[in-house]
Design a binder for these strands. Structure first.
Lengths: 182, 182
DNA sequence: ACCTGAACACCGTTCAAGT
DNA sequence: ACCTGAACACCGTTCAAGT
């Protein structure tokens, strides 16, 4: 990759992260290009689809996911607390900007999505937490891990679009957690 | 209302219902106007915002909601079955077209939404079902009815965007139902 | 090899002119 | 009072010309 291309790529990603956080996932790509000081064609050369840009933005995000799951697993307390804490972390992780929870959760089952590797990381982190509970024998057995991602992702999606705060999200996560434990 | 205005209004609503069902809530309003045989200005005169059009489309829908809740309450069987059945009906009711579950669920808490009366009808139907379970003493008491709408609406939203069928939705509704019962 | 920016397409929205 | 459709704005997307 040529030096100027590299520089443009990095600036676009940095600016996009900022614009998405300000205006949500549906923000104008024209504005991203302008703020990054490049022509629209340059943006499209590097990121043919909006999702490719999202994928690039989330490059550093994957580490955060793994670390967060590690911490959640190290949590001292009841199984219910562990699960609830993980759910709250999960919601935080996928709520980077407006529209992100919906985007990430709907991509969870799509093998052709440009952000599939990111979804896999998230799914694996979730698997690790659930596996721990399963070994403790406290998890109901007729629900697949991906359905748990969808349930919590659904809560995050609604919280995002209705602009609910953590205090309003908490009871919903409790219902999901209690429904999963036996 | 003048006769030609009335006729145009009705045609637009009818066509919009069809187009939304085919292409989802984000469909082009230009196409709606074209198919209805009116100019774009006519559509905007009757429906200044897209949500006003959605509201008009759902005029007959309110009766269906009330009837569905009536039937659910007449259901013979366990409380869990009653609740689960209502949840499945609820998902069906708000999944009229792509994008509808998200739209309806995010409008549930917004008193300024053009479709607020429709949301109220849905919320009241849900209240009636929950009240019945509360009287039976099987419902946990620390969750507000609107949170139940959001939980089930969240499941419907994800099912909608991920194009899940009823078989995939069912286990998620079971988790929510079991989390709500004690 | 990469960038630029004009150009095109599409769509939402407005409004002057018409009936 | 209502309708029409041209006009404008905005944005995504492409591509010929340039470095």
């Amino acid at each position: 990759m040529r030096a100027d291309a590299r520089r443009n790529y990095d600036r676009i990603v940095e600016v996009a992260r900022e614009v998405f956080r300000e205006q949500g996932y549906d923000a104008s790509l024209d504005e991203v290009a302008k703020r990054a000081g490049v022509g629209p064609g340059t943006l499209y050369r590097h990121f043919p689809k909006r999702e490719n840009l999202l994928d690039a933005i989330m490059q550093s995000w994957v580490d955060r996911v793994t670390e967060t799951a590690d911490k959640a697993l190290a949590h001292e307390g009841t199984d219910r607390d562990l699960l609830l804490n993980w759910f709250e972390q999960y919601v935080g992780l996928i709520s980077q900007h407006k529209g992100a929870p919906a985007k990430l959760t709907s991509a969870m089952g799509d093998p052709d999505s440009p952000i599939r590797t990111k979804c896999q990381v998230l799914a694996e982190a979730n698997d690790r937490v659930l596996e721990r509970l399963r070994q403790d024998g406290v998890l109901r057995e007729d629900v697949e891990p991906i359905q748990v991602c969808r349930l919590v992702g659904g809560v995050a999606t609604i919280a995002d679009s209705s602009e609910l705060d953590a205090a309003a999200v908490r009871p919903m996560l409790e219902v999901v957690a209690d429904g999963l434990l036996r």
